[in-house]
Amino acid sequence: MLDIRNLSAAYGQSQVLFGVSLSIARGQVVTLLGRNGMGKTTTVRTLSGLLPATGGTITLAGEPINRLPPHRIVRLGLGLVPEGRHIFANLTVRENLLMAQANPLAAADPWTMDKVIEFFPRLGARLSNGGAQLSGGEQQMLAIGRALMTNPSLLVLDEATEGLAPVIREEIWARLKVLKAQGLSMMVIDKEVDALTEFADHHYAIEKGEVIWSGDNAALLADETIRHKFLGI
């Protein structure tokens, strides 16, 4: 589904990514772990076309995307839930969802507003409310719902549950498990390792713009060095 090879990226003269490589198989959930400022969000921004790559390659479902603009990448199947949610505060919940509605890959059973509301019932009671009137948890649900409305083949979540109340975090994790069961490929960035290991298949740890470790759930849970040194757990 996704293959990143020797990816480099920079902000002006400051290089941030140094040869990042990772892959996600179809239907697989992969995490990108690391402390703040280590290159996780820069990887996501480069993957989604918001920051030009200075080297390396990115392919999505076999299509090279590292030289494409963001809207073309979305049409090829990338759905992004950005850090900070970035919903449209001056639009209603209904408008936030409808503006993202698309089915570029001709999914047989596409996501619609009704399906998103069924998936996140809290949003159904808030359809006429503006984005700024939602709680943090509701905004995150809306951000995920908006990404699903593009009918992605790969969903990328940057800080999936950051700053949310425990009960909302549990609800988000439960919904992501449903998406995995439905076969959706995902890249998830978050610090809740215990929750991630309940449904992720593989993990990558990044430090100073380089992938310094990768492994499955058993390897991550067994390796205290990774969890303490690179995740602060």
Rank of each mutant, 00 (worst) to 15 (best):
L123N: 07
S48M: 07
D190Y: 06
N151G: 09
T161F: 01
V93D: 01
G56Y: 04
A200T: 10
A53H: 02
S48Q: 05
Y204G: 09
A100P: 00
L22V: 09
L142I: 12
A125M: 03
L184G: 00
G39S: 08
A200L: 11
N6W: 01
M186A: 07
L154R: 05
L220C: 02
S14H: 06
L60T: 09
L179R: 02
G62S: 05
T225D: 14
G183A: 04
I226W: 01
M113D: 04
I189K: 04
A106Q: 14
E207D: 15
L154H: 09
R94M: 13
G34H: 04
E171W: 03
K40E: 05
L32F: 07
G232H: 10
G79A: 12
I233W: 04
A61N: 15
L68M: 13
I4K: 05
A61D: 15
V93R: 11
Q182F: 07
E224D: 14
A205R: 04
L221Q: 14
L51N: 03
R126M: 11
P152D: 13
I87W: 02
T225K: 12
G37F: 01
E83N: 12
Q28K: 06
D158W: 01
M149E: 09
I65R: 03
A218M: 00
V188A: 11
S8G: 08
I65C: 03
Q15H: 00
L196E: 09
Q182K: 15
V74R: 03
A160K: 02
L97I: 11
A61L: 08
L97H: 09
L148S: 06
V178H: 04
A219F: 00
Q101R: 14
L68F: 05
G56R: 04
N6L: 05
G49S: 07
E138D: 14
V188G: 07
S8Q: 05
R75N: 11
Q133P: 00
L157N: 10
P121N: 13
I144T: 12
G39P: 08
R26N: 13
D3N: 13
T92Y: 09
M186K: 04
G56C: 02
S14Y: 00
R35S: 06
A53R: 04
F119W: 13
R122W: 00
E118T: 15
L78P: 08
I206H: 08
A9Q: 10
A143R: 11
R146K: 11
L176V: 13
N96T: 12
L78S: 06
E171N: 11
E171A: 14
G27M: 09
V16C: 03
L164D: 10
N217E: 08
A143S: 15
A25Y: 01
G145W: 13
P64Q: 08
L17H: 03
A143Y: 10
I168D: 01
L220E: 05
G49N: 03
K229E: 14
A53P: 12
E170H: 09
L78C: 05
A132S: 12
A25V: 04
D3A: 08
E118Y: 10
G12R: 01
S8T: 08
L196K: 05
G163D: 09
N90T: 13
L148M: 12
A102Y: 07
L231C: 03
R35L: 14
R146H: 10
R67Y: 02
F199P: 01
E171Q: 15
P110N: 10
G12H: 02
G215A: 07
G37M: 04
T59S: 12
G49C: 04
T161C: 09
V116R: 12
S8K: 06
I65S: 01
S214P: 00
A165M: 14
